[in-house]
Design a binder for these strands. Structure first.
Length: 160
DNA sequence: GTTATGCAAATACGA
DNA sequence: CTCGTATTTGCATAA
């Protein structure tokens, strides 16, 4: 409903790449250049970035360059990462009353009786692509987005 | 199999 | 031209 067009856009982007396909796509393809592939940042890198973020939510270009070099990432990527981190915070902090805390009391419960418990145990195999990105070049590692809490696969490229 | 939803990167725009 | 923010876009997962 909102962001749904995984396929529709796909052809638009890659359609003309392979073939001229002059009969269709022209307006959209003409204006927008190809986007970069989504760079997946490794979990460890994210952690490092996070730490720096706490120290300096707004590092200067020099710091970013330094950090980027240390982590072996592109300067742009690091810059963007910080930007997104700030946005995320903004989205979570302001709505104090509505987003942060709405659970308090609630201690009852017990849940069920299940004696075992290992419900949240997913046996995934993130080590490899869950579903190929659509068969085509693999610049980086697409991979698992984030199941919602920890657990992220891991990898990132080491190119360069 | 589809659609819907969320998060996160990349892009576009403005300062 | 660089930097910051807003918006779009991409992909992974849930329903």
């Amino acid at each position: 409903m909102c962001k749904l067009k995984p396929l529709l856009q796909k052809w638009l982007e890659e359609a003309d790449s392979t073939t001229g396909s002059p009969t269709s796509i022209d307006k959209i393809a003409a204006q927008g250049r190809k986007r970069k592939k989504r760079t997946s940042i490794e979990v460890s890198v994210k952690g490092a970035l996070e730490q720096h973020f706490h120290k300096q939510p707004k590092p200067s270009a020099q710091e970013i360059t330094s950090l980027a070099d240390s982590l072996q990432l592109e300067k742009e990527v690091v810059r963007v990462w910080f930007c997104n981190r700030r946005q995320k915070e903004k989205r979570m902090t302001p709505p104090n009353t509505l987003g942060g805390e709405m659970l308090d009391g609630m201690g009852h419960g017990h849940y069920g009786h299940d004696v075992h418990g290992s419900p949240p145990l997913h046996a995934h195999s993130p080590a490899l692509s869950p579903h190929a990105q659509h068969g085509q070049h693999a610049p980086h590692a697409p991979h698992s987005q984030h199941p919602q809490h920890g657990l992220q696969s891991a990898h990132t490229l080491a190119a360069h």
